[in-house]
Design a protein around this nucleic acid. Structure first.
Lengths: 91, 91
DNA sequence: CGAATAGATCGACATCTGTCAATGTATTTC
DNA sequence: GAAATACATTGACAGATGTCGATCTATTCG
């Protein structure tokens, strides 16, 4: 059986995946070669800029995506180790 | 990039995992040899019987757990193919 | 049939979540 | 420093979600 703290943490990670927009955003970032600029996420997601910012924060907080600001732009990249960790939890 | 319908469906599946109680319930069912009686889920989860019933319905609706009523009792079992499908989505 | 039992459903409530317009903040460029 | 730009934060709102007590439903057993 699952420890209570583990369950809480895992649930938060899965919650980050429990939204179609976030899955779309993650798939864009994950399927990119390297990094993806925040400016390239608004239009494909079909949501407003604040909404995209909100969702990206959730993905970053869950550790699924890394965030780096360079100049005016913010660059995102997938964190494969974290995705692997979630996959392992489903065994 | 992810198709809109796929994203919706996937999001619902992950949403089923986005709650610590459901993760606990699933871990009990998944780690059991065969089936698990609903009556054996209430006490370990620390929630009321209606609440456990509610959460199990969500897991069943997501296809992660199968449900079979025999006599007075309801028996649950994990659906490994569905868990595999989710793991594949995280690649 | 009547009593007992396992589980589902209902109703109500507080909390959480997704969304956008408006505004704030940091950085570059002139 | 002023203007422009990229992104974050705030505030507000509707709708979804987790929870439990009370009740309903189906099944078994006298």
């Amino acid at each position: 059986m699952l420890d209570e703290g583990d369950a809480q943490l895992l649930a938060q990670s899965f919650a980050a995946l429990a939204d179609p927009i976030r899955l779309t955003l993650l798939s864009i970032v994950a399927s990119a070669k390297g990094e993806v600029c925040a400016c390239d996420l608004v239009e494909p997601s079909g949501r407003s800029q604040p909404t995209v910012s909100h969702h990206m924060k959730i993905l970053v907080d869950a550790g699924l995506v890394s965030r780096e600001k360079r100049g005016l732009w913010v660059w995102y990249a997938a964190v494969p180790e974290r995705l692997d960790a979630l996959r392992n939890a489903l065994r």
